[in-house]
């Protein structure tokens, strides 16, 4: 049996794992986007009693390897009364990690908008939420997108670590196939190519998005 045949025959058993990887990534990215934008906005505009703990949390999480974070939520969580299944724990850990990155990206993107924009928006009588939605966020989006896509690809790649708490994602299904076939090389190459395909489509999608938001700045 050639390497190619082995791979073709094992492919169907990888689809399930791929679906889990995509699901875990999509959920983490979505939670992180919502949570991170809220946290990042609070970092810029919040009063200090709100800013200080968020700053601490973001710095703490950013300083911990994702794998440690996953183990921490999964193994230490129950001791703190947080009893989650391995999938939920993994999603929570990935989301926390990614949200702390998104918070920092959001803070930077908002800060890059000229302070005069806020003044002009105030001067015409827009309320704070209106100023964010109609003036600040549309301009910050341009600065937000490129680093955010980077963080999304980080999350997809980081999701391979959830296999270590027993979730059968793409990574673990590859290892299971290798366990059956004793032929690691073609499967690791295949795995790398699949992750590459996901992330490459993400970055090309982002280039389209960036082009859409690329009004010429004054």
């Amino acid at each position: 049996m050639t390497g190619l045949e082995t791979v073709l025959r094992a492919l169907p058993s990888l689809w399930g794992g791929l679906a889990v990887t995509l699901e875990a990534s999509a959920l983490s990215v979505a939670f992180a986007l919502i949570g991170g934008v809220l946290l990042g906005t609070a970092l810029v505009f919040g009063p200090w009693p709100l800013r200080l703990p968020i700053r601490g949390l973001v710095d703490l999480i950013r300083g911990i390897p994702v794998l440690v974070l996953i183990f921490f939520v999964y193994y230490v969580g129950p001791a703190a009364g947080l009893r989650l299944g391995n999938f939920a724990a993994a999603i929570l850990a990935l989301s926390l990690f990614s949200a702390s990155q998104v918070a920092e990206i959001t803070r930077g993107a908002i800060s890059s908008v000229h302070h005069g924009q806020m003044e002009a928006a105030r001067a015409i009588g827009l309320t704070f939420p209106q100023r964010l939605i109609w003036v600040i966020f549309p301009q910050a989006t341009r600065r937000f997108l490129p680093p955010w896509i980077n963080s999304v690809t980080d999350t997809v790649k980081g999701s391979a670590l959830i296999s270590l708490v027993g979730i059968v994602d793409l990574m673990l299904s590859i290892q299971q196939v290798i366990g059956r076939t004793y032929d690691p090389m073609p499967f690791y190459i295949l795995g790398a190519l699949i992750y590459l395909a996901i992330n490459y489509s993400l970055s090309s999608a982002s280039r389209h998005l960036e082009a859409r938001f690329a009004y010429v700045a004054t």
């Binding site: 005069g116 924009q117 002009a120 105030r122 001067a123 827009l126 704070f128 209106q130 009004y215 010429v216």
Partner: peptide
């Protein structure tokens, strides 16, 4: 929120325009 209402009664033009570039 009150300030927004009050500011809506005045118009301001800035030295550096501050048009919304988007």
């Amino acid at each position: 929120r009150e300030l927004s209402r009050i500011r809506a009664a005045t118009g301001m033009v800035f030295q550096l325009f501050y048009l919304f570039p988007h």
